[in-house]
Computed example of a mutant assay.
Amino acid sequence: MKTAVIFWSGTGNTEAMANAVAEGAGVSAVQVSAFDGDVSEYDALALGCPAMGAEELEDSEFEPFFSGIEGKISGKKIAIFGSYDWGDGEWMRLWADRVKAAGAELIGGEGLICNNTPDDDALAKCKELGSKIK
């Protein structure tokens, strides 16, 4: 099974989560700006993006990327994760709804969120999430 872990991180919190997810999946994490593959060639994707603004996906790189692949993820295993500083996780619930509406199999429930810097427990959950998508 071909798996990719793709993320955007502004503070390093979601990057730490991405690295733990990638470790669990047995792959390397790649920043969305450096991803040059075709998601159609992957069986599973773990996508990471923090909450930005009014609880939304980062809009200069990640949102355009995700919008561009939404039509290509039907039938794929998708895990989503990210960090936040405030709010209640609305961005993750909305993102999970988009993943399911696109016909993907959402792995790990409604997405994995972490308040600010992930602690050891959060990183362990990230590794576990990675192991579920490989």
Rank of each mutant, 00 (worst) to 15 (best):
2 K>T: 12
4 A>M: 02
5 V>L: 05
7 F>K: 08
7 F>I: 05
8 W>E: 15
10 G>L: 11
15 E>V: 07
19 N>Q: 14
21 V>A: 01
22 A>S: 09
23 E>A: 10
24 G>P: 00
26 G>K: 12
26 G>D: 13
27 V>T: 13
27 V>L: 10
30 V>R: 08
31 Q>I: 12
31 Q>C: 14
32 V>S: 13
33 S>D: 14
33 S>K: 14
39 V>Q: 05
39 V>C: 07
44 A>S: 10
44 A>R: 00
44 A>W: 01
46 A>D: 02
46 A>Y: 00
48 G>D: 01
50 P>S: 15
53 G>C: 09
53 G>I: 13
55 E>N: 06
55 E>C: 03
59 D>N: 13
60 S>Y: 11
61 E>T: 14
61 E>A: 12
63 E>V: 02
66 F>G: 00
67 S>Y: 03
68 G>M: 04
69 I>Y: 07
72 K>F: 11
74 S>W: 14
75 G>C: 08
77 K>W: 02
78 I>Y: 02
80 I>V: 09
84 Y>E: 07
87 G>K: 04
93 R>Y: 10
95 W>F: 15
97 D>Q: 14
98 R>G: 04
100 K>P: 13
100 K>H: 09
102 A>G: 10
105 E>A: 08
106 L>H: 13
107 I>N: 03
110 E>K: 13
110 E>F: 09
110 E>I: 09
112 L>C: 00
114 C>S: 07
115 N>G: 06
116 N>E: 10
119 D>Y: 01
119 D>G: 06
122 A>Q: 09
123 L>C: 03
128 E>N: 08
130 G>M: 00
134 K>C: 10
